[in-house]
Amino acid sequence: MGAPAPDAVELAIIPAARDIGGFGVRRALPSAKKRTVGPFVFLDQMGPADIAAGAGIDVRPHPHIGLATLTYLLDGALFHRDSLGSAQEIQPGAVNLMVAGRGIVHSERSPQGFRATGGRMDGLQFWLGLPKRFEETEPSFEHHAREALPTLDGEGWRLRLAIGTLHGLRAPVKTFATCFLADVVLDAGAVYELCGGHDERAVYIVSGEIEIEGVLFPAGQLVVIRPGARAALRATQPSRLAALGGDAMDGPRFVWWNFVSSDRERIYAARADWEAGRFATVEGDPEFMPAPELKAI
């Protein structure tokens, strides 16, 4: 038998690794054990992977409703285009936030410079479910450079806040509910204490290993913290974490393909709209990603 779970830990999720054209992806949310953490309904780690010169990532135009996507790169580069006319390259440490609301279409591809040389690719993508009153809001897009995001240094650790509020910091990125997402880098032996004050909290271990109350958690796990618990995270080696959480969602959400909604009928309608060509298109990127078969949600 393994060591008992720490009192501060509700559960640890070990996401299954999938291979997409030689590019590994780990999906920590949603999982059978935990569907959401605060407003976060989706968490993917993309990579790490070494992309050969001449190759790249090509995610064809696809639709979203009822959510906001947040892309945060650790290495490499991606180019975002959407049906609002946005065209933006994202670099490590910056934030792309796309609010889908009533509906948006976007593509994500390796930019030409990265594609020509190849290189290391690693990043995180999150979906935040929108509160019910904002599910049909107008779509929007915003980009914030690395230098625009607030930072905080502790004893042996450094933090960059990607969205929301934490440790008295406030990121400039638009929010619809109380939440936070922070990139935390720790030296070996450093201890970082995750703030309370939020309904739900978790840490995704991007690299390295952390110890909580004598129990070790290696890279690739999402560690969900019990509500109200003190969470002291000690790095046993140089480590990097994504700390996330916020207020609990205002009710359950249906998640299917690229759609999130409190109303399953809205998802059926969105799929029909996509297949019928009623979504706006992405200028300069005419490809089409067919929706998978939908039997029931």
Rank of each mutant, 00 (worst) to 15 (best):
E142T: 08
T71S: 14
A68W: 10
R81K: 15
A116L: 11
H143C: 04
W127N: 11
S83M: 12
G66F: 01
N96G: 00
K132S: 14
Q125N: 04
M98A: 08
P131K: 11
F126H: 07
F126L: 15
R109Q: 10
D122S: 13
F114N: 02
E108H: 04
A94C: 02
R133T: 13
F134S: 14
V105E: 05
Q112R: 14
E89H: 05
G76Q: 07
G93K: 03
Q91K: 13
H106T: 03
Y72A: 06
A77T: 07
G85M: 12
A68R: 15
F134A: 14
L84R: 07
A145K: 10
R102S: 12
R133A: 15
N96H: 09
T69Y: 09
S86I: 00
R120S: 10
H144Q: 11
Q125M: 08
L74G: 01
R133N: 14
T137N: 09
N96E: 07
F126G: 03
P111V: 01
K132Y: 11
S110I: 03
E136C: 03
V99R: 13
T117W: 01
Q112N: 11
L67D: 09
S86P: 05
A77R: 14
R120I: 01
G118N: 04
V105R: 06
D122P: 00
A94D: 05
T69E: 09
D82R: 09
T69W: 04
L70R: 12
R102M: 08
L74F: 04
F126A: 12
I104W: 04
P92N: 02
Q125R: 06
F126S: 04
G113R: 11
H80G: 08
L128F: 10
M121T: 01
D75F: 02
H80D: 09
E138F: 06
L130A: 07
A87V: 10
V99N: 03
K132G: 14
D122Y: 00
P111R: 05
N96Q: 14
I104C: 08
L67W: 02
D75A: 12
A100Q: 05
V95H: 03
F134I: 01
G123S: 04
G118Y: 02
D75T: 00
G85D: 14
G129T: 10
S140Q: 10
P139I: 00
W127R: 11
F79N: 15
